[in-house]
């Protein structure tokens, strides 16, 4: 493309954008347009939007932003650009968005039947679509799996200087600690966090994949990560994680899982279309995209899918703790982390 032409296109685009912002405001809702605010940006989601567009003959408009930005944006000007569906990662965030009044109740027998009660809001404000498990990845040659019991093992003095984890500002760590506070109480949870921090092989840095790579490189022996990063690395050619294994910290009441979910937005212009999108995402066709493209566990357990790595990782029991407890404890969890000295 010539510079001149792209410049022209740019100008046209700018004019169009200005025009759009000037004529915005209260326009007639387009019954064939679904506006989605999402804090996810995965291939499975794009495949889902596309499949929905084709199945229903509608257009899907997506705005993506990280979880908290998304909530703030909906709160600040949801009135002029109302979303129909809001999708976010982490049950605590779903709870928070609900506290802000962002979701409208939407009853669906189909969804109630398919999605387990622990993965959806009691009054249909939001529905879980997929989950990720917070697991311990360990080096097979340096760690005996029998030495691992649950999350408490990370605080074991035997692992001094051998643990890797990312920083405490990360939502996955916060939600895990929020769940542990409910499980153990604040005092024991803080004791755990400070002992884990004392066991760190290095100051927290990078993301979950970087913790897994550090175990593979021998910088640490165990790491606290989400299962789906491990599955992704196991399926890619760039990373060699063959010397590592996943340990399910199942000790009662189960492995902490992080839920991604969707809800019909309050003030949605097309609430029925919005609900039909969520139902589509919970259908067999929609659900299998999550494990196959993103290595997440589908919310609907009966769905069949093909993913060798997930199959090889085996089955586990998930902690059925409700999102409202996790969400309600998140602030406390960050305080506990701050006090425990987990950077």
């Amino acid at each position: 493309m010539s510079i001149k032409r792209s410049l022209k296109q740019g100008m046209a685009c700018f004019a169009a954008a200005l025009l759009a912002s000037c004529t915005g405001g209260e326009t007639e809702p387009d019954p064939d347009k679904l506006v989605i605010y999402s804090s996810r940006h995965y291939d499975s989601d794009y495949a889902l939007y596309k499949a929905f567009e084709e199945a229903k003959g509608v257009t899907v408009e997506v705005i993506e932003a990280d979880g908290d930005l998304l909530i703030e944006r909906v709160r600040a000007d949801g009135a002029s650009n109302p979303p129909d569906v809001i999708i976010t990662v982490d049950s605590g965030r779903l709870w928070r968005a609900d506290q802000e009044g962002l979701f409208a109740p939407a009853e669906s027998e189909f969804l109630n039947e398919r999605i387990p009660a622990s993965m959806r809001h009691a009054d249909g404000h939001w529905y879980g679509l997929s989950s990720r498990a917070r697991v311990i990845v360990y080096a097979r040659d340096r760690v005996d799996a029998d030495a691992l019991a649950g999350y408490e093992s990370l605080a074991d003095p035997a692992f001094e200087g051998r643990v890797c984890a990312r920083s405490s500002g990360n939502i996955y760590n916060i939600s895990l600690l929020a769940a542990l506070i409910d499980r153990w109480g604040e005092t024991r949870a803080q004791d755990w966090a400070s002992k884990v921090a004392a066991n760190f092989a290095r100051a927290p840095q990078g993301g979950d994949s970087d913790q897994i790579r550090a175990v593979a490189a021998g910088e640490c022996d165990v790491a606290l990560v989400n299962h789906y990063y491990f599955a992704r690395m196991a399926r890619s050619e760039e990373d060699d994680v063959s010397g590592l294994a996943v340990f399910w910290p199942e000790a009662s009441p189960g492995v902490h899982v992080n839920i991604s979910g969707a809800g019909v937005a309050s003030g949605a212009r097309n609430p029925e279309l919005a609900l039909s999108f969520i139902e589509f995402a919970a259908s067999d066709e929609g659900q299998r995209l999550f494990p196959e493209l993103t290595n997440e566990y589908p919310a609907v357990t009966s769905v069949s899918y093909s993913n060798d790595v997930l199959d090889a990782m085996g089955k586990f029991t998930a902690d059925p703790l409700s999102g409202s407890v996790i969400g309600g404890n998140q602030e406390l969890a960050q305080r506990v982390f701050d006090r425990a000295g987990w950077p």
Binding site: F14, A17, L18, A20, S21, C22, T23, G24, G25, I63, R73, A76, D77, S80, N81
Partner: peptide
């Protein structure tokens, strides 16, 4: 008639 809040350029 004029949207200047978030979501506008």
């Amino acid at each position: 008639i004029l949207t200047i809040t978030g979501g506008s350029i």
